[in-house]
Simulated scan of single mutants.
Amino acid sequence: MTMPNPDFDAEALYRALAERMKSGLAQARDVAIVGIHSGGAWLAERLAADLGLSARLGFIDVSFYRDDYAERGLHPDVKPSQIPFEVEGATIVLVDDVLYTGRTTRAAINELFDYGRPARVMLAALVDRGGRELPVAPDFVAETVTLPPDQHFVLQRAADGRFSLTVDHA
């Protein structure tokens, strides 16, 4: 059951994340943004436009790189990864909607290195919900919220591009 939560204004969270990234990347060189499908890809598209990095935007689907691929199997919504710029030597900002265990981030880094060796990899997330299983921390995050293990955040994008964030009670 998915329920809206008035405490999670996804648009306000997005603005906070964009502002933190703008100031945090001011001195960085050769910056590119890579969104993790699907919520991270939606965020990355808007961030790239708002930060003037649309020409340095890519997308990753980590389905084949996950350590639980055998358990999860192939989902019908697997998207192709697209990185249309040189990764070698770049500062890459991986973008995901929710940071939880760190396993998706690990998979994204593994895939990213198949494209080349970046100078630096940074992580941006709309929400950090804790519960890490791997030593992964965001460089940019809008909000840190603890949820019980049986609850999950769900980011949605409306036709006009606006975001909403709900909590799914499994």
Rank of each mutant, 00 (worst) to 15 (best):
E71V: 13
L53D: 06
R66A: 01
I33M: 13
A48G: 06
G52F: 07
R66V: 04
P76E: 15
I60K: 00
S54I: 11
S63P: 00
L74N: 01
F64K: 00
S54K: 14
D61T: 07
I60Q: 11
V62W: 03
E71M: 09
G40P: 12
L43I: 11
L51S: 07
I60Y: 05
G39A: 10
G73E: 06
D67N: 05
G39V: 12
A32C: 12
G35T: 10
D77H: 14
D68V: 03
G58T: 03
F64P: 00
G39R: 12
F64Q: 03
L74W: 13
S38F: 03
L43Y: 02
E71D: 13
I33C: 08
D67M: 01
R46F: 00
L57Y: 09
S63D: 00
S54E: 15
V31Y: 14
A49F: 13
F64R: 08
G35A: 06
G58K: 02
G73F: 05
Y65I: 00
D68G: 05
H75G: 10
A70F: 10
H37A: 15
S38E: 01
A44S: 04
R72Q: 09
G73Y: 10
D67R: 08
F59Q: 04
D50M: 07
A55W: 02
P76Y: 10
A32M: 04
F59W: 06
R46C: 00
L53F: 01
H75T: 15
A32K: 05
R46W: 01
D68Y: 02
G40N: 14
I60A: 10
A41N: 04
A44H: 07
R72V: 09
A48S: 11
Y65P: 00
D50H: 13
G58V: 03
G39E: 11
L43V: 04
L57A: 06
L57I: 06
H75I: 11
V34M: 11
I36P: 10
D77Y: 10
A44T: 09
I60G: 01
V31W: 14
H75D: 06
S63N: 02
A44R: 07
V34S: 04
D50P: 02
A44M: 08
G35I: 07
R66L: 00
L57S: 08
W42L: 03
A32H: 09
R56H: 13
H75V: 14
Y65H: 12
S63R: 14
F64E: 13
E45H: 08
S54V: 11
D61I: 06
L57F: 08
A70S: 10
I36W: 09
G52E: 08
H37I: 12
G35E: 02
A70K: 13
L74T: 13
L47V: 09
